[in-house]
């Protein structure tokens, strides 16, 4: 939130219980693996709300996002750390394939900007509402709709003949990309 102070970890609240109370029906399941590791399944629609609540209200630190392709869809994991409580809380959202789309949390947490762009490049997940959805990791001449970290990707760089390369270079020059 603009102008609002960033909070330290709130000490006397159990973060998972607070999140459940806040989201209500948005929470699908809670799996407490150990005292320091909790996994919370949430509905895709409440991701932004959940991230905002964790970050702004409970004072969590966003570690990173993980995208994970499974048979049932694309899982997006949001790893949050409550450093003073020594607890890692992971939110898990399942996004349906083949065209995965999820709300961007960058408007809420600045630190998520680059990882969302990275997941967009490597897994082809669209983050709705991302302020700067441009390529970050892949090269400018990498073909569209080829996502190297998906399971179906077989590790073949799309090799080109010298003529095709020349065409690509010409295109890049016209676009003005260095």
């Amino acid at each position: 939130m603009p102008g609002e102070a960033v909070k330290d970890t709130v000490m006397n609240v159990d973060p998972v219980e607070a999140l459940q109370a806040h989201l209500g029906g948005g929470v699908i399941d809670v799996f407490e693996r150990s005292a320091a590791r909790t996994y919370v399944g949430i509905h895709t629609s409440v991701v932004k709300d959940a991230a905002a609540f964790m970050f702004n209200e409970l004072g969590a630190r966003l570690i990173i996002l993980t995208a994970l392709e499974t048979r049932s869809g694309m899982e997006i994991l949001y790893h949050f750390s409550f450093d003073r409580l020594s607890r890692l809380v992971t939110l898990r959202a399942l996004v349906p394939m083949p065209e995965p789309q999820i709300d961007s949390i960058t408007p809420v947490i600045d630190g998520a900007e680059y990882i969302e762009r990275e997941i967009r490049d490597l897994f082809g997940v669209t983050f709705i509402g991302h302020p700067n959805p441009v390529r970050f990791l892949l090269a400018d001449d990498w073909p569209d709709c080829v996502y190297p970290y998906r399971k179906e990707y077989r590790g073949q760089y799309p090799y080109r003949t010298e003529e095709e390369l020349q065409q690509v270079r010409e295109q890049m020059r016209r676009k003005g990309t260095k």
């Binding site: 960033v6 630190r61 570690i63 020594s86």
Partner: peptide, 28 residues
């Protein structure tokens, strides 16, 4: 300190800005 927390920095960068986090202590 605000920016360090907002941008989720870690390690000596965060500690130099007054964010008291260290994995060695927080997640022994």
């Amino acid at each position: 300190r605000e920016d360090a927390m907002k941008r989720c920095t870690v390690g000596p960068v965060a500690r130099s800005a007054g964010v008291d986090i260290d994995i060695r202590r927080d997640y022994p």
